[in-house]
Write a protein that binds this DNA or RNA. Structure first.
Lengths: 231, 231
DNA sequence: CGTATGTTTGACGCGAATCAATTTTCGTGG
DNA sequence: CCACGAAAATTGATTCGCGTCAAACATACG
């Protein structure tokens, strides 16, 4: 069975300002990076390492060239909320203000390329880049809203099911989903505890919807059934 | 005691593309509307009326000139999640795709002005408008992420407390917070039930943090104490 | 004034968090 | 290559916050 197409991918091209770009979450059209100065060569981070921290001066933004990055926020109580995971080709860390509102950390060993924010100049006639950034911001907002929906109105089984189908759609490798992140990361992304995530995965396996090949590799037995678990 | 300034308002002006605009959530600089064609005069909606529906052709976007609008999504199960409330001066309904991803409804009697999306042309040299839209999108993303944090990692008391302090900050009318929306709306915004919202408000009143003057008017007794209820 | 809608309060049950204990996985050095 | 220790993941027992169900009360509207 083919992986179903995400609703957003079905949209037709709109008119006017909106006629040129259709981007998947966080991505920008190829070649755009040539038009602005980079802050340097690609930088690698080992697993768990911090790329930038909430409150840091947001003078740079990044593109993932390999691996996976998480954007998260820590509360005074020690709780953590992961806002998003960013994989290869996606950009992150572009802020409107002068400080990062979230921290970025390497989920897995990863490589990112940094770009200087002040290199972005709207007056230089590079409307294509400008448009791309605009759509990036719009995509960010859309994904954050989807995330809110997930967090606000779903029970544990629904959350995990949605997470898995979304993952399956992303890496598009058929039924095998490879998770770069830990159960803790998944829990903090879904607003659950590690134990609950683990329990739900076990339940989904007992029900025959998935198979936990290894802890970080999940085979999806029935995407249809899994989707039906989504509210 | 003065209402505390929201962190975002404290940011210093950044450089480059980011040097010109500092906008509160969803707002655009005055006068920008003169530069594009409107779809017509202001339109009024009565309480509860639908402005647009999820899936509708998103050829227009709107600015609230009076009243309050809610953006929400309905799940198949009948559950509803409110993503945001938009008050006077804020714009909403600007989409990257060709269809609205959310429905917009009038929370209170309200008036909005519609603008044609295709009137937005980046090539006409109107970089100021373009920048404004970019920052609008960035602001949308930021607020959606704050919302995620709220939904994912807060208990009922924290959610309501954050909601109230945010409201107090918005209308800035000292200690009296006027709520244009019902308890149902608040509940669906916070990912709670009406009963829980009501119970928490009663508890906050019992504890002396607020005073329920009328159902839709709340006097804040101690903003400090209320803030300490936040996570 | 009566009906509908919105709000509050109470009783109860369920789902997910918490606390606790294994088991598994994985990185590291012998 | 295997042994070891640490971290990750799973599983179980119990608690508790919030949802659900139900009813009383308040407010707005025709």
């Amino acid at each position: 069975m083919p992986i179903q197409t995400h609703p957003a991918a079905k949209m037709n091209a709109p008119t006017g300002l909106f006629a040129n770009h259709f981007l998947r979450g966080g991505q920008l059209p190829g070649g755009w990076t040539d038009s602005i100065a980079t802050a340097g060569a690609a930088v690698s981070f080992s697993q768990g390492q911090e790329i930038f921290s909430e409150g840091d001066d947001a003078d740079r933004f990044f593109k993932v060239s390999a691996g996976c990055v998480r954007l998260c926020k820590y509360l005074a109580s020690g709780r953590r909320q992961i806002e998003a995971f960013h994989g290869t080709g996606e950009i992150f860390g572009l802020e409107a203000g002068d400080a990062y509102r979230l921290s970025a950390e390497a989920v897995s060993e990863c490589t990112v390329v940094a770009y200087r924010r002040h290199a972005l100049q709207p007056a230089n006639g590079n409307t294509a880049l400008f448009e791309a950034l605009f759509f990036h911001a719009m995509g960010d907002a859309a994904r954050a809203q989807e995330h809110s929906l997930l967090l606000g109105r779903s029970c544990a089984v629904e959350k995990v099911s949605i997470f898995l189908t979304e993952r399956a759609r992303r890496d598009g490798a058929g039924w095998a989903v490879t998770l770069p992140m830990s159960r803790y990361d998944i829990a903090d992304y879904l607003g659950l505890t590690v134990e609950t995530v683990s329990r739900v995965l076990s339940k989904l396996e007992r029900d025959g919807l998935i198979k936990l090949t290894t802890a970080r590799t999940i085979a999806i037995r029935s995407l249809t059934a899994l989707r039906s678990e989504e509210a």
